[in-house]
Design a protein around this nucleic acid. Structure first.
Lengths: 162, 162
DNA sequence: GTCTATATTCTGATAGAC
DNA sequence: GTCTATCAGAATATAGAC
């Protein structure tokens, strides 16, 4: 709290005009983050064929996670510091996001363009692979965002291909 | 330190007969973990064709990470609490492990059995995908370890396929 | 080698003046 | 709404008895 206050330019006590306690502040950050993720993904989603939907999901997830690397980092590292009730609420939002990718995979299987033995697991595998970019990507690094997107889309596409 | 002492069954002060400070204790745990990873992987590795090597790596990484879920969790979550020098030492070990997968990919590309636009990135992508299993896998869950290995090997194989 | 006791620092949170 | 001052508890680490 003292570090946050210093960053904002006030004393620690002043923060309590804006949040009842530290837990609420953390939960609010994480809830906003997940709600932004769901809302922005909804805007971004198209009702194309499954392959186009999967590509859109992949590129959206990469961009969203890299543009908000700090929030993603906190949302992952501070999960264990949420109360059980708050943890459950965040997990519910995370589950909703995962369900959207899983739905795309089911559509692709039904259409005969994907071959996925376990869509739930494939969903988690793809998201883990893409989210992992945040641990090494740097804007001034060797690869542009466009190149990163292209490389990962190639791997995602092939990993669920027939 | 108090929690560790309680778990062991001594008072907090007694721990300082075994470690000079908390940082050294954490670093020792993480260093041992990474050295075990490298040593066990070396035992496990075969000098087969690239496809067999990649399958062995995939299955080894899954098993190692699930059998030591606690150590993996700590090694990831506590990275930010290492001093810069200790952090660099752990990253060096991690890099050596990644290099082994990258070498397999390079062999497969040279042999014409893999098609990977960027072997370094593919290495990170595969490891992130596999390590992510630790966030959801439970021994009493829906899938056996054998089934998990099969599903992920299918995805890894396809993601780097020609 | 472990204990009790304690020094020191840090933390989240509150009280009351302005 | 922010400040100063402070409380209460927790943390790492040390000292000295046994």
């Amino acid at each position: 709290m003292r570090k946050i206050a210093a960053e904002v330019g006030v004393q620690a006590g002043a923060l309590y005009n804006y949040t009842p306690d530290k837990q609420s502040l953390l939960f609010g950050l994480m809830q906003n983050h997940m709600q932004d993720l769901l809302a922005l993904h909804e805007e971004n989603a198209r009702n194309d064929d499954p392959m186009a939907q999967l590509e859109a999901f992949t590129r959206f997830h990469i961009r969203f996670n890299l543009e908000r690397a700090d929030a993603v980092f906190i949302s992952y590292m501070e999960l264990r510091n949420l109360t059980p009730a708050n943890f459950a609420a965040i997990e519910e939002l995370r589950g909703r996001y995962e369900d959207r990718l899983e739905a795309i995979l089911h559509q692709g299987i039904a259409a005969g363009v994907f071959e996925v033995p376990d869509p739930k697991i494939a969903t988690l595998a793809v998201i883990a692979m893409l989210t992992g970019i945040g641990t090494w990507y740097r804007p001034q690094g060797r690869l542009t965002l466009q190149q990163v997107e292209a490389i990962y889309w190639d791997m995602v596409r092939k990993s669920v291909a027939r």
